Amino acid sequence: MSIGENIKKLRELHNLSQKELGEIAGVSDKAVSTWEKNEKSPRMGAIQKIADHFGILKSDIIENKNIVSTINEPQQTYGSDSVPMPLLGSIAAGVPIEMIPVKEMINVPREIADMYPDAFLVKVSGDSMNKVIPSGALALIDPTEEIKNGDIAAVSVNGYDATLKRFYKFQDGITLEPESYNPNITTQFFSSKEQEYNPIHLKGKLVWYMAPLDIKF
């Protein structure tokens, strides 16, 4: 079977529309239509996104074979070059990390996982650190790493979900500094006195981040 036929069969097996598959691959439904008609061939990046989403190999899509038999075969979801790590939900103050529900497991390069075996992923929301890490990215947070002045940390303020900020601790308080292109986002300072009723909880240090599989360029 051709690449287009394999993509169409894969889409139909999962009861997806061309628009839904396009969202997975980061393209329009018209692009998916041209693939399935064999008018154009998808780029390798799009094929990789589709393969990652369905837990199959890229070669399963591009090689001349029936995708149905591939789907029905047991798949090795996590290859030798990647390791599954937990993507956590809300990480609010006072909630132990081990009690936070795991939303799903996400593959990260084995080299990274080996360096930070106790780390977890969170999805970045908002533009307060978009000079460094874009909204929608998956940030790897290590709760065991020492957080020093100038490090980017997941910080929970007064019980709210953790936010990523550059952290500075001074004798009279703590500063949380954004790195944003949005001029409306400003530095926050919490004095030692203020922290008695507005506590700061450090959840871990940002050690790495990756783009989500469904990111659009």
Rank of each mutant, 00 (worst) to 15 (best):
E98D: 12
I100Y: 01
K103W: 00
K103V: 11
E104Y: 02
E104C: 05
M105E: 10
M105V: 04
N107I: 02
N107H: 00
V108T: 00
P109L: 02
A113K: 05
D114Q: 11
A119F: 01
L121Q: 06
V122M: 11
S125Y: 13
S128T: 04
S128F: 01
M129D: 06
V132M: 13
V132G: 03
I133N: 08
P134L: 15
G136F: 07
A139I: 05
L140P: 09
P143E: 04
T144C: 12
E145N: 10
E146W: 02
N149A: 14
G150K: 02
I152E: 02
A154E: 08
V155Y: 00
S156E: 05
G159L: 10
G159T: 09
Y160W: 07
D161A: 12
A162C: 10
T163W: 03
T163H: 06
L164T: 07
K165H: 08
R166Q: 13
R166Y: 02
K169R: 15
F170Y: 14
F170W: 08
Q171G: 12
T175D: 13
P178T: 08
E179W: 10
N182K: 07
T187R: 11
T187W: 03
T187G: 04
F189P: 00
F190Q: 03
S191V: 00
K193W: 05
Q195E: 14
Q195H: 11
E196P: 08
Y197D: 09
N198G: 04
H201I: 02
L202M: 13
K203R: 12
G204P: 12
K205G: 10
L206D: 09
